[in-house]
Design a protein around this nucleic acid. Structure first.
Lengths: 216, 216
DNA sequence: GACTCCCTACCCCTTTAGTGGTAGATCCGT
DNA sequence: ACGGATCTACCACTAAAGGGGTAGGGAGTC
């Protein structure tokens, strides 16, 4: 019984590396590749793979969104999140979206193959570090209270380094109103200043990398 | 005449992918691998490769530092910077350090082989985007005036979201002095607020990723 | 010795940011 | 119809940040 694997990563070098790692094992077969989230979802729909190796950082549609869709439409298909950095928000997001496993790109080949087989069998396999992040998250439930839509808009402008006055102009509201929103954002994020809010937003992945790079 | 290549990347998957890409070409031979900057430098010393493929984001010693050392000690060895994101600071930093080329991890195999051969011949090969970044840098000479050592220290604390008072305590100096430093930092970075300074520092790569992640 | 750069520290002053509270308008679900 | 959440907006006040300038002491350079 061969396990059919779909690889989703925006770097061709990484895809080729994974292909090599997996190709050596006769129980595994790479049935397709995808270079972004949308491709990944479409390929999964067509191929019905047993396991998807999904990079979290991809253009067009990020990996977490793709995981959600795939897990919804194809409950038989298990997804392993794949990333180069072990970051709290990414682990939690991937697991929330339905990933059964989480691994780093510096994982060795045997470990990788073991995880794919476990995933195909529906068994959860997490690295000790990833488990630790999940534990912490469970112990501290929704540390980040959900921001409202408007607050997210304000946060996005904060992350571009704008002042309250500039934000007010951009959103066509009074500066006092902006201060109210900022006040609530700081409280919800549990920080003391807009700079900390910006750093927290970036760290928690509340804003996409594109948004925070607009500066200049 | 076979071109001897050293691969330096902290992700085993990426190394394997590069090996695959390059192995298909009889003119290229992968003579070694390194998982961090220090390993890269040591391997280069021993192996004297013709070309080093150097990831910029690595633990222990980052790629740019490793490039500097290698280019200094082994002028015959050309280095191609390798990274997943095309970012202004990284391009400029790599070229300053002595990289002869710069390429992204989503580069296709033929392109990759072509660049390695050009590099071995001492020819510069840059992607159009990377060239554009360099052009902009040249047109805007030292947009970022060099910060002094003390200013860098203050900047690092700024990037951790600390207030002037907290920074003063951390550095054992008066808050007024901190304000003076911050004043100079803002002027040199050409920004209007500490939040913008933090964003700029991150974008320009003036602080390492580890430093900005300390929050919490 | 004169000069420059850096770090330190203070001055005065303006602007921006942050805290606490209240409150009307709207929408949504029960 | 009612409560709850959200967005809006204001008030008063305090704290923090930023902009201008000056200036002494140390280290290094010419």
């Amino acid at each position: 019984m061969v396990i059919r694997v779909l690889i989703a990563d925006d770097h061709s070098v990484v895809r080729e590396g994974l292909r090599m790692f997996l190709g050596r094992d006769p129980e595994l077969e790479v049935v397709g590749e995808a270079a972004d989230g949308v491709e990944a979802v479409e390929s999964a729909r067509q191929l019905h793979p047993d396991v998807v190796l999904m990079d979290l950082l991809m253009p067009v549609m990020d990996g977490i969104a793709a995981i959600s869709i795939i897990r919804n439409e194809l409950p038989e298909t298990e997804v392993i999140a794949l990333t180069s950095v072990l970051e709290s928000a990414a682990v939690v997001g991937a697991v929330r979206a339905g990933a059964i496993g989480y691994l780093l790109k510096d994982t060795q080949a045997p470990e990788l193959r073991r995880m794919i087989k476990a995933a195909a069998a529906g068994q959860v396999q997490l690295s000790p570090q990833a488990s630790a992040y999940l534990m912490r998250e469970v112990r501290t439930p929704e540390k980040t209270e959900a921001l409202t839509e408007r607050e997210m808009e304000v946060l996005r402008l904060l992350v571009q380094g704008q002042s309250n006055k500039e934000i007010a102009r951009a959103l066509q509201i009074a500066e006092d109103t902006v201060k109210t929103h900022v006040k609530h954002i700081l409280a919800k994020l549990g920080v003391q200043s807009r700079t900390q809010a910006v750093l927290g937003a970036i760290r928690l992945g509340l804003v996409s990398p594109e948004q925070r790079m607009k500066l200049q």
